[in-house]
């Protein structure tokens, strides 16, 4: 590996200063499961890695029934999966978090890293888009919120500017009668990368008879994890059921722009999008049904 310097600041300000000084030649180091592999292969030419795991704000999990969920960008997947609040209120997020890599990757990999790696197949990115998540970004000019749906701009490319650091991922508190799910297709059960994936979030009317809102996001079928804007239109006002799911699946298939690669063909992925969107919607609706008024609001 080409030599680089290492710093482990203990505040966001220190980290941003270090990153801003080096610009393109510095990167944050969270779990290291992508960046260290990429540096070793010569994909980046870095002078400095800034370890962000000693910054308290980046390794915290905060939940408040009013404010929602704030996940430090450098919390490991293993810690997220064991967290009772996430298990209770954000199972659709854990669907994706729990399938990234095997046990040893889970012990290190982070949501901030998954997002900044900006892989088209990033399972957690699609799941976070479906949940309507935002990235809290700190930079030389201060802090800002970036919708996760517009965070990734091309394979491996993000909306971050030199000196920027993703501090946390933020999600609204779960609405009553809402639910989310993420599913993917992989030939292996574990340690695999999505051939295609779909995340869905739905909100139902109090009686559960119609969709009041929905979001669908796809992975591995476009240059970035993809927010399917038209799927919400296809579902609004419809009754949960196979007809509505088929309409949403069709909208998702129209939005998808899959390619042929070593993991699958464009045609297979196009087909999978339909199957996976329906599966994600069925699971999300089932969770919404279980999530009665009030139960989603307790910490």
């Amino acid at each position: 590996m080409k030599p680089f310097a290492y710093e482990a600041p203990t505040s966001v300000d220190q980290a941003v200063t270090l990153l801003a000084e080096k610009g393109e030649r510095a990167r944050p180091l969270a779990g290291g499961t992508d960046i260290l592999v990429q540096v070793r292969r010569g994909f980046h030419n870095l002078d400095l890695l800034v370890d962000v795991k000693r910054i308290p704000e980046l390794v915290r999990i905060d939940y408040d029934a009013e404010e929602g969920l704030t996940l430090g960008a450098a919390v490991s997947c293993a810690v997220l999966c064991e967290h009772p609040t996430l298990q209770a209120h954000y199972p659709g997020l854990l669907d994706a978090v729990s399938i990234i890599g095997g046990a040893a990757i889970q012990g290190r990999a982070t949501l901030g890293g998954n997002l900044c790696n900006a892989a088209p197949s990033g399972d957690a990115i699609a799941a976070m888009i479906a949940l309507g998540g935002e990235a809290l970004v700190a930079g030389p000019e201060g802090r800002r919120l970036v919708p996760i749906a517009s965070f990734c701009t091309a394979p491996g490319v993000t909306a971050l500017r030199p000196g920027d650091l993703v501090v946390a991922l933020r999600f609204a508190p779960p609405k009553p009668h809402s639910g989310a799910a993420y599913v993917r297709f992989v030939p292996r059960g574990e340690m695999d990368i999505a051939v295609a994936g779909a995340g869905a979030w739905v909100a139902l009317s109090p009686g559960g008879t119609t969709f009041t809102d929905a979001r669908i996001a796809l992975s591995a079928v476009a240059p970035t994890p993809l927010y399917v804007e038209r799927a919400a239109e296809a579902l609004a006002g419809q009754a949960p059921g196979e007809d509505a799911y088929a309409r949403a699946a069709e909208a998702a298939q129209e939005a998808a722009k899959p390619i042929d690669d070593m993991r699958g063909t464009a045609a297979q992925r196009q087909h999978l999008v339909g199957v996976l969107v329906k599966r994600a919607l069925r699971a999300a609706v089932a969770r919404a049904g279980a999530n009665h008024a009030g139960t989603g609001m307790e910490a």
Partner: peptide, 16 residues
């Protein structure tokens, strides 16, 4: 095992 978590030591820096 690093602080009670299984990790790939090839993907951890010694300085970490």
């Amino acid at each position: 095992i690093l602080d009670g978590r299984l990790v790939n030591s090839c993907l951890v820096l010694g300085v970490e």
